[in-house]
Nucleic acid binder design. Sequence first.
DNA 1: TTCTGAATGTGATGTAGGTCACACAGCTAC
DNA 2: GTAGCTGTGTGACCTACATCACATTCAGAA
Lengths: 190, 190
Amino acid sequence: MEAKEILKTHVAKLASLTDDQFEYFFSFFKKQHFKKGQAIISEGDAVDCEYFVISGCLKSFFINDDLKMFILQFAMPTWWASDYNALYNHTRATISVDCISDTEVLCLSNADREKLCSELHQAEHFFRWRTNKGYVAANKRLLSFMNNNVKCRYEELLKLYPELYNIVPKTLIAAYLGVSRETLSRLHQA
Amino acid sequence: MEAKEILKTHVAKLASLTDDQFEYFFSFFKKQHFKKGQAIISEGDAVDCEYFVISGCLKSFFINDDLKMFILQFAMPTWWASDYNALYNHTRATISVDCISDTEVLCLSNADREKLCSELHQAEHFFRWRTNKGYVAANKRLLSFMNNNVKCRYEELLKLYPELYNIVPKTLIAAYLGVSRETLSRLHQA
DNA sequence: TTCTGAATGTGATGTAGGTCACACAGCTAC
DNA sequence: GTAGCTGTGTGACCTACATCACATTCAGAA
């Protein structure tokens, strides 16, 4: 499926745009290709865009003072990624985004999103519900962190996104779960 | 300050409503009073409303199979609370909400919020940005969980919301930080 | 007053997961 | 080929936090 069709199907799930409106909506997105390992947003960057994944896989992550990496999100096709804190507050990136595999994205700038939202009521509706869903998901993950041990969280992740098991190195899955790769590896034993 | 004024000031930070529009906006909210300890949403309830706190303090929390409580959020004046998963997806509550102190809220139903959002573009704008900010905050808390030990998270919490230290029992602060009350208590020693 | 029950502190001990160290397999580059 | 790099497993040991038990303080009710 073509990028435009993928976005259209995705948007239609949350908002009602006429074909003309969607053409206008789509006109603000820029297609970009990145190679495996390539950085899209690096710590310290000015952040101007968010990215809608068409194919491939991104990760958004944080690296602490001890150089330990924590993954906030894997972004598969039809997912969005950016450093939203930096994007919304016009600050420098503290979250980085890079490519786990060769990836094709549609890029939307902050200014263009706001323009779209102010001109098209249904665009504002779409982005409200996109974030509503993200908010609920983030809170679910928070609860899972507080309530469940690593094994539960790992099984939960694999149940939600079985495709990750094959695409993503275990080291990165450990960084998403917030444990060491050694501990994740030892889960097989039990 | 009166409830209407508090909401007006709060909304004005994110959206531009004329006085007439705000009157209309406000007309959908119902004022409610609750006593300390009173439940607003209990596990298993149908969830129809979200609550804007005027005075007092709420907590939203989850209780697991071992009867351990985890606090998702303290809601102080000008904060919103509900079980958003249940509210948005029309499912039964898994998150409960109750009163830490006597509390006055403005209650908005799901249907009324959607009506407002579809009729008033600026209302949709307001709710989009409210959730955007919540989303960013939830992700910050997630990172803090992965990256920081209990002491850091406790200090972070007190720096952000110093008023909690006096209002809220330590047991509840421990439930927010995701540690036992004993461990929290022992932080004084170090 | 005395009793009761929250809220908090603190000692002893258990455990999940972290850290360090090393091994080995599979790739790619030359 | 072999050198080097990434990904993964696993043993030995360490640490942060949990759990259980008990003590203390304070507020409100009888």
